[in-house]
């Protein structure tokens, strides 16, 4: 299968600060590719580079065969760590932003977004202003906003980081089928090893700055059953320990 996202010998620096070094990976269509690593290792930078929001210093990076910034920008929808909901728009208008940007009418955009609202437990909150929503709801609106764009590649930067552990577990269970249903190729950055393992097909571990991929571990995406059962299985635990050990060996854990 041709890779939807591919990085070859990718390097990036901010001035003299080297943030990413010799990154190599390929993500197949429909695959969920998790990226974990210590804070400051360049995970978020990597995601923004893939999404065409920045240029690699060296190496090749392509999305659906497009290697230019504009081409990558066109192929990806980026969901930043903060939800970045615009406070002057209702939840529904926020969720439909991409379609309005793409030249569709506001009515069409709202209609397309509204279809997802019920599915994500947001019915009744269509006209709520972002500040009236809980953290979990805001994240879901931001996720719908990304999904509705219809882009083939979704770049999720810590989509659940702003939430407490219980909400996060709930949202993971909701995120998994949502991602599967979208058919999109997903790059998922997380500092939470369990979250990445549970949601992804494969999880790449980055070293501290400059970030390099030190290992790639099989994720639990294919596994069936409720989340509690999946994450407490022996094989899941083994992989979790393996990932944590890899992170710990390379410096700070987390």
């Amino acid at each position: 299968m041709t890779a939807t996202v591919s990085a070859r010998d990718l390097t990036h620096s901010y001035g003299s600060l080297k943030t990413l070094a010799e990154i190599d990976f390929e993500v197949s269509p429909g695959e969920i590719f998790g990226i974990v690593g210590p804070s400051g290792c360049g995970k978020s930078t990597l995601l923004e580079l893939v999404g065409g929001l920045g240029s690699p210093t060296a190496g090749r990076l392509s999305v659906a065969g497009q290697s230019g910034n504009a081409g990558r920008l066109a192929g990806c929808a980026w969901m930043p760590q903060r939800d970045c909901l615009l406070p002057w728009y209702s939840a529904l208008d926020n969720a439909g932003l991409a379609l309005v940007n793409q030249g569709r009418s506001r009515r069409e955009a709202r209609l397309a977004a509204a279809e997802r609202f019920a599915h994500f437990g947001l019915q009744g909150f269509e006209s709520a202003r972002p500040e009236e929503l809980s953290g979990g709801m805001r994240q879901r609106v931001a996720f719908i906003r990304t999904l509705v764009s219809g882009k083939p590649v979704l770049l999720l930067d810590e989509p659940l980081a702003a939430l407490d552990a219980i909400t996060r577990a709930d949202l993971q269970e909701w995120l998994a089928p949502a991602l599967a249903g979208s058919g999109a190729t997903v790059l998922l950055v997380s500092h939470d090893v369990e979250e990445a393992l549970y949601l992804a097909d494969r999880v790449a571990v980055l070293s501290p700055r400059p970030g390099r991929i030190v290992a790639t571990v099989e994720g639990a995406r294919g596994e069936t059953g409720p989340r509690d059962q999946v994450v407490s299985s022996t094989s899941f635990n083994q992989r979790r320990q393996e990932l944590l050990a890899l992170l710990a060996a390379r410096g700070e854990n987390k």
């Binding site: 923004e48 980026w78 930043p80 903060r82 991409a98 309005v100 793409q102 764009s149 770049l155």
Partner: peptide, 26 residues
Amino acid sequence: TDPEAVRMMRSLDASRFGIFRRVEVP
């Protein structure tokens, strides 16, 4: 203007004017 919101809008296909109108002006 929140630079992160601007990048989010760029990633979601906003034109320069779209960003001006929907993010910078408000």
